[in-house]
Write a protein that binds this DNA or RNA. Structure first.
Length: 499
RNA sequence: GCGCCCUUAGCUCAGUCGGUAGAGCACCGGCCUUUUAAGCCGUGGGUCCUGGGUUCGAGUCCCAGAGGGCGCACCA
């Protein structure tokens, strides 16, 4: 790409480069500085001096640093909004305080977007704006690229995702979402650590991608000349660790599924999986309620309801519970016996206008999605899911066609999936063999058997409950974002091909 | 993969019936000691996403392509 003479953007950049050169010639090269002593944050000062009357100033001196986001001039006086990570504060430059030459340099050579360190006293202007009365400033970094519109910010969705640095720099509410994401995950870790869970890391590059039904990404290790897959779940490795005696274990990690992209799916996303020996899915349901209530209280300052899109979600405990087949009976009038019969289930799926499902399990899933999911707004546990859909969950002793498994639905979206883990190696072997048959029959999403996992179960795994929580969706609820791309810093995008 | 929609100045957006492309902000120059998106005056700035086609004439109509958004499909 070459700049053409007369293109506006090139001129904007040239003007900024000229200002850079001017600063350098004054001995104020922004790229030479390596440090700046910051002793205050904008929002702290706003809070601390909220009561300072207009027109008054204080003797104490502060130094802060951030990005210049707005410039307002008035001859021998200049105002600027300085944004740091915490918020913003106005800079007030007067010739008799900062000096005539520095003021002039500021007015002529500091551009919107520049990174600035400023020292001075706190004052509130006649107009009531808390300001730093600047005594000295340093340009700590030059913005050579022009910033998006000061009023509209960066709106173009594609650019927001591709150039997230710009989005974050000019749209403070976006930065808030990602800072909140970090707080949520930190709080999640504290919550788990307080309950004696141990955080581990298991492999991302694996030979057999199991623990879920999804197509994996494929890659290759050169030195071993070995085809590998990126993991689609952490389940089978974490359960190996329970076998090994780590009784409460979790992992928060990236997993990868080679699937489509929409507002609820990104090909790489963050999953928290957790396993607790000697718990059943009942204790896990209890735990799930506590965890969600805790996080909702964290982001709402103690409330139990959460605004989400155009509705309000109620996280008051206990959450609603409904049994899988009861829900289908209630919302669709379908009987368990019909749904558990492969032929009749396919028939029901077709009567609902669904495309022909490739398998019985698929049909059940689609029917549930169409009939029940639209009703699940407030957090609802769907309990006792058929073994047909649950290759890794333990059967109910009193009803072996069902498993001790629940899924939590929130806002018509699956929020988590939990069950009493199958620890009978013979039963697990049989289910792997079933999946292998599906795979041979052409189901690319059925994972190949992981025989070493069977060996692990043969060593002996205690009764254990496990749960998987999609962290991105969790953050969507807690920050009221309707697209998963708005809680992932760099969502997958096609590369831009230079012509 | 399918359908609908979007792509015009650095940014945000107008652009009528097909008749030689506009605004606000930003930038640049000048004036200005209390501004809050925001003082006043003035100058400059375009690969209308790309490539074809129709037409005397295309930002506008047609075809193909690229990128994106939404929905559907896929996907626990």
């Amino acid at each position: 790409m070459k700049d053409q003479e007369g293109t506006r953007e090139a001129e904007l950049i040239a003007a900024r480069r000229a200002n850079l050169a001017a600063l350098r010639s004054m001995g104020a090269d922004p790229y030479v500085l390596t440090r700046f002593d910051v002793n205050a944050k904008a929002s702290e000062l706003q809070r601390r001096f909220a009561d300072l009357p207009a027109g008054e100033s204080l003797p104490e001196r502060f130094a802060l640093a951030g990005r210049v986001m707005l410039l307002r001039g008035q001859g021998n006086i200049a105002f600027a909004d300085l944004w740091d990570e915490s918020g913003k504060i106005q800079l007030f430059l007067k010739a008799d305080v900062v000096g005539k030459e520095p003021l002039k340099a500021f007015q002529h050579h500091v551009d919107r977007g520049d990174l600035l360190g400023a020292q001075g006293r706190i004052a509130r202007t006649k107009h009531g704006e808390l300001s730093l009365l600047v005594e000295r400033y340093d340009v700590l970094g030059k913005a050579l690229a022009p910033l998006p519109d000061k009023w509209h910010g960066l709106v173009d969705v594609e650019r927001r995702y591709r150039q997230r640095y710009l989005d974050l720099a000019v749209n403070p509410e976006v930065r808030q979402v990602f800072l909140m994401r970090s707080r949520i995950i930190a709080e999640l870790r504290r919550f788990l650590d307080a309950r004696d869970f141990v955080e581990v890391e298991t492999p991302v590059l694996i030979n057999i991608a199991g623990g879920a039904t999804a197509r994996p990404f494929q890659t290759h290790h050169n030195a071993l000349d070995l085809d590998l897959n990126l993991r689609i779940a952490t389940e089978l490795y974490l359960k190996r660790l329970v076998v090994g005696g780590i009784e409460r274990v979790y992992e928060i990690g990236r997993i990868f599924r080679n699937e489509g992209i929409d507002t609820k799916h990104n090909p790489e996303f963050t999953m928290m999986e957790l396993y607790a020996a000697y718990w059943s899915y009942e204790e896990m349901a209890q735990f799930t309620e506590e965890l969600y209530a805790h996080l909702v209280a964290l982001v709402t300052d103690g409330k139990s309801t959460l605004p989400f899109g155009d509705r309000v979600l109620d996280f008051q405990r206990p959450f609603a519970r409904v049994k899988y087949f009861d829900a289908l009976q209630e919302h669709g009038g379908y009987a368990r016996a019909d749904l558990l019969d492969a032929e009749r289930a396919l028939h029901i799926a077709q009567s609902l206008g669904l495309p022909k499902p490739p398998s019985h399990a698929h049909a059940l899933d689609k029917i549930f999605e169409a009939v029940v999911e639209p009703h699940l707004v407030d957090p609802t546990f769907v309990m006792d899911i058929p073994v047909l859909l649950s290759p890794l969950a333990k059967r109910r002793a009193d009803d072996p066609l069902l498993t001790e498994r629940f899924e939590l639905f929130i806002a018509n979206m699956e929020a988590c999936n939990a069950f009493s883990e199958l620890n009978d190696p013979d039963d697990q072997r049989g289910r792997f063999e079933e999946q292998a048959r599906d795979r041979d029959a052409g189901d690319a999403e059925a994972p190949p058997p992981d025989w070493d996992f069977i060996t692990a179960l043969e060593v002996g795994m205690p009764p254990t409950a496990g749960i998987g929580i999609g962290i991105d969706r969790l953050v969507m609820y807690l920050t009221n974002q309707q697209s998963i791309r708005d809680v992932i810093l760099f969502p997958l995008a096609r590369p831009i091909v230079e012509r």
